[in-house]
C-alpha cells in the first residue's frame, strides 16, 4: 500500500466535511440540531474543521423537552460560548403551555413524540431551510434508508418511498418555499466509528458518557436515572450503581448501562465488545416494530 490513501476515519471525516460545506453553499439559513449527545457534538466538531479558520456558519438548535440532564445543559452552554455560535431553543414546555401539544399520560408517558411539533415550529418560526442532524444509518432500520440530503415537505413530513436518488457526490438541496431539508453528514458512521474518532481527536463530551455513580431504577432491562420526573412504581427500588450512558436523550427515557469505563480508551474497548445495539436502552424505540419509521415520517429527527 502506498501513502496516498485515506484510512476509513479520514475518509468518513472528509465525506462529512464535504456535506457540511454543501449545506452552507446550498442553503440560506441552516442550523445544527444539537441535543448534547455525542453525535451532535461530533457534527459540531466537524463543522469547526470544515470552515476553519472562520467560525461555524450555523446556529445550534436545541429542542428542549424540559426533562434534561443538568450536565447536558451546562455542556451546551459552554460549547456555545466557546464556538461563538448562536443558540436557538425550541421548548416543549412552551408548546404544552401554548396548547400546541398535549402531555402524554400514564406511567410510561414521555415527551419524546411531543418534540416533533416543537421542532417543526422552531424550524418554521426561525425560517430554517436545512436542519443538520447527527442521525446515522446504522442506528435503526428506518434510518438505514435515509439520504445525506433528505427532503421534507411543507408539513415537515418525510416520504421514504419517494426520496430523491443521490448519486456520486452530487447533492440536490433544491426546495420550494416552506419546505426544508434535513442533512446527515455522519450517515455512514457507526457507533464504533464515532467512538474511535472521538478518541482520536480527543473531543470533549459530557461526563454522563463516562462511568459514574448514580441513583437509578431498573426498568425494561435498563437503568433509568432517578430524577424529579420519574414516577416510581410499587415494585421499583432506587439503587446506586456505577453506570454510564451510551446515548443521551430526555432523562426520562435514557437508560444507562453498568460500566467501569471512565476513560475514552475504556469506552471504545467496551463498545467494541458490546452485544446490544445502542438504541436497545431507549424506551422510545421499543414501543413498536416501526416506532422510528412512524416518528420520522411525521418529522422527527
Amino acid at each position: 500500500m502506498n501513502k496516498y490513501y485515506l484510512n476509513y476515519l479520514d475518509e468518513l471525516e472528509s465525506e462529512a466535511i464535504y456535506i457540511l460545506r454543501e449545506v452552507h453553499a446550498q442553503f440560506q439559513n441552516p442550523v445544527i440540531l444539537f441535543s448534547g449527545g455525542k453525535d451532535s457534538i461530533l457534527v459540531t466538531h466537524l463543522a469547526k474543521k470544515a470552515f476553519y479558520p472562520a467560525n461555524i456558519p450555523f446556529a445550534l438548535m436545541h429542542v428542549d423537552t424540559g426533562h434534561n440532564f443538568p450536565e447536558t445543559i451546562q455542556f451546551r452552554d459552554d460549547l456555545i460560548e466557546n464556538l461563538g455560535a448562536r443558540l436557538i431553543v425550541g421548548s416543549v414546555q412552551e408548546s404544552i403551555d401554548q396548547g400546541r401539544v398535549q402531555e402524554e399520560k400514564g406511567k410510561n408517558a414521555t415527551r419524546n413524540a411531543l418534540q416533533i411539533t416543537t421542532l417543526l415550529d422552531a424550524i418554521e418560526s426561525n425560517k430554517v431551510d436545512c436542519a443538520i442532524g447527527g442521525g446515522r444509518r446504522d442506528e435503526e432500520k428506518a434510518r438505514a434508508k435515509e439520504r445525506f440530503f433528505s427532503h421534507r415537505d411543507d408539513f415537515g413530513q418525510w416520504d421514504p418511498k419517494n426520496q430523491r436518488p443521490e448519486l456520486w457526490n452530487l447533492l440536490n438541496g433544491k426546495h420550494f418555499e416552506g419546505e426544508h431539508f434535513r442533512a446527515f453528514p455522519i450517515s455512514n458512521w457507526t457507533e464504533m466509528d464515532v467512538w474511535n474518532y472521538i478518541k482520536r481527536e480527543n473531543i470533549e463530551i459530557p461526563s454522563l458518557y463516562f462511568a459514574h455513580e448514580r441513583e437509578v431504577v431498573l426498568r425494561n432491562g435498563s437503568w433509568i436515572p432517578n430524577s424529579e420526573y420519574l414516577q416510581l412504581e410499587d415494585h421499583e427500588e432506587i439503587l446506586t450503581k456505577k453506570i454510564r450512558f451510551r446515548t443521551l436523550g430526555d432523562i426520562t427515557i435514557t437508560g444507562g448501562i453498568e460500566s467501569d469505563a471512565d476513560t475514552l480508551e475504556k469506552i471504545a474497548l467496551e463498545v467494541s465488545a458490546m452485544r446490544q445495539t445502542e438504541r436497545g436502552n431507549r424506551t422510545d424505540d421499543k414501543r413498536s416494530e416501526t416506532a422510528m419509521e412512524d416518528r420520522k415520517r411525521e418529522g422527527y429527527f
Binding site: A142, A144, K161, S187, E293
Partner: peptide, 17 residues
C-alpha cells in the same frame, strides 16, 4: 427495512448496512 418492505417482502429503496 421499511414497513411496506416487510409487508411485501421486497426491497423498495437502497438500504445501507
Amino acid at each position: 427495512g421499511l414497513k411496506d418492505e416487510r409487508e411485501q417482502g421486497i426491497t423498495i429503496d437502497v438500504a445501507y448496512r
